[in-house]
């Protein structure tokens, strides 16, 4: 159903990392990998920093929209459409989240 959201296991996702320590790059990558797996069925282990969403992970443009919205929810960040276009690789997305949470 379309109403299905991208909920991840609570123990895996500490909502805002501000409440404890700042999340490490690897923690953010891991959570992003779970989102990409949920939305697009990509094996989470394949979601590495150097991978391009479209060219390497075969994520289509509509799935990318879903991933961005899930990222906004889970990491409590805003990703305007103009910015979303620049998130070509997993590393781009992780860096964006780190900057937004800094």
């Amino acid at each position: 159903m379309s109403a299905d959201t991208h909920t991840l296991p609570a123990e895996f996702l500490t909502k805002k990392m501000k409440e404890g320590h700042m999340a490490t790059t690897e923690e953010i990558r891991g959570k992003l990998a779970e989102i990409v797996n949920q939305v697009a069925g990509v094996n989470a282990d394949d979601v590495q920093l150097d991978k391009s969403f479209t060219d390497d992970l075969d994520v289509d443009s509509l799935s990318m929209v879903e991933i961005i919205v899930a990222v906004e929810d889970e990491f409590d960040v805003q990703v305007p459409d103009e910015e979303a276009k620049n998130l070509r690789t997993v590393g781009d997305a992780v860096a964006y989240i780190e900057r937004a949470n800094a």
């Binding site: 159903m1 379309s2 109403a3 919205v69």
Partner: peptide, 21 residues
Amino acid sequence: QTLLGTWDVQKERGHRRVSPF
């Protein structure tokens, strides 16, 4: 069912949360 479910999402959570699919 998708039509109605999507409209529910939009009403409750806003246009940004509707599925692109």
